[in-house]
Design a protein around this nucleic acid. Structure first.
Lengths: 190, 190
DNA sequence: CAGAAAACAGACAGACTTGTTTGTTTGGCA
DNA sequence: TGCCAAACAAACAAGTCTGTCTGTTTTCTG
């Protein structure tokens, strides 16, 4: 395994453990044991546990939005369907056995100081999500795309929370049904 | 201060610290220092930190739903307005300087094992919230009250998450606007 | 007032935390 | 092949964590 690969693998392992057990509960020792590397190597790549967490969130954000884009581009035929396809992506995520709620919200919960780099990274991800929804809404020629994007975002966040707490992936479909009505209305008004 | 009062005070202090710093990050020593009691006293009342956390969540749930009921009963004149008043309650919460996101979602994030008593308590709170929304929807004579309650719940969870991450209390009003449309539709169909 | 129960401060145990240090081994590149 | 940087294991430091124990003081109750 090459150096760059090893770094990626380390981030992947850390992401899984942080997501599953929590950012405080999962320790550095657990990460290196699971990743099969020495502690010195981890601290060479990342100066501290917090830096590792930030790196994990950055990578998770990239992977998350890429994966959503793929589902949207593959599933949605019309621009309106693309907006709804974001909920199909959610449903797939909820059905994954490695779904333990939103890692960004969990991070924001454990590092609640707004100045914390961890909180900042979580907030950044959410901003990028809303921006993506707005991009889709605009492409669909819907009225008030910024407002619609925020409404879709509300529904997605709600779906994630509900799916986490109930364990029921149908939260995605229920949120999608509401989103469909909002999109329909925004289509009429346009 | 009487024994019962001391116990209540202890729970209040613990709730504030857990909510603010996180359940793992806030330690038992911090709780007793802030509450001004001896560690032996804490461990007499609660056998472990986890038991304390569960007690905190139980109490927070009661206070939360009582406070919401009060706002609903005071603010809402018509049954439909009562449903919308739940969002007024949220807005007040978001504006509170002690708002650090939903303590139940944070707890569920840190104690992700579904068998954990902590997770169970968080899930219980969410079920009771949906039940309350359904009660209000039924009282308003709206069609499909169970479905509407779940939709309102989605919007509330979304509003909490968005308000936490953005720090903007207006998330409540935005969610309320969507809820108003759902209620309106459920009124026509009835 | 006397006795019992509980609260107190503080030390203590033992395990765990992040992060550093040491000295050895390995792997890639010239 | 020879070198250098990096990875390695393992011990270590310094601090934190939960939970227990001791002995004293307060407080409630019969």
């Amino acid at each position: 395994m090459k150096r760059a690969e090893k770094r990626e693998h380390l981030i992947d392992v850390a992401a899984e453990l942080f997501n599953r057990f929590g950012y405080h509960a999962a320790g550095v020792d657990q990460v290196i044991a699971e990743a099969g590397i020495a502690k010195t190597t981890l601290y060479r790549h990342f100066g501290s546990k917090e830096e590792l967490i930030v790196a994990v969130l950055k990578r998770t954000d990239e992977q998350f939005r890429d994966a959503m884009r793929q589902v949207v581009d593959r599933t949605g035929c019309t621009p309106k369907q693309k907006l709804l396809a974001t909920f199909d992506f959610l449903e797939g995520w909820f059905k994954d056995k490695a779904f333990y709620g939103c890692p960004f919200m969990s991070a924001a919960g454990e590092y609640a100081e707004r100045l914390s780099p961890v909180f900042h990274e979580a907030a950044m991800h959410k901003r990028l999500m809303v921006a993506y929804f707005e991009e889709l809404a605009r492409a669909a020629g819907l009225s008030e795309p910024a407002r619609l994007a925020e409404e879709i975002n509300l529904l997605q966040e709600g779906a994630i929370a509900v799916a986490h707490i109930t364990g029921d992936p149908k939260a995605a479909a229920k949120a999608m049904a509401v989103a469909a009505r909002l999109i329909e209305d925004a289509g009429k008004a346009a």
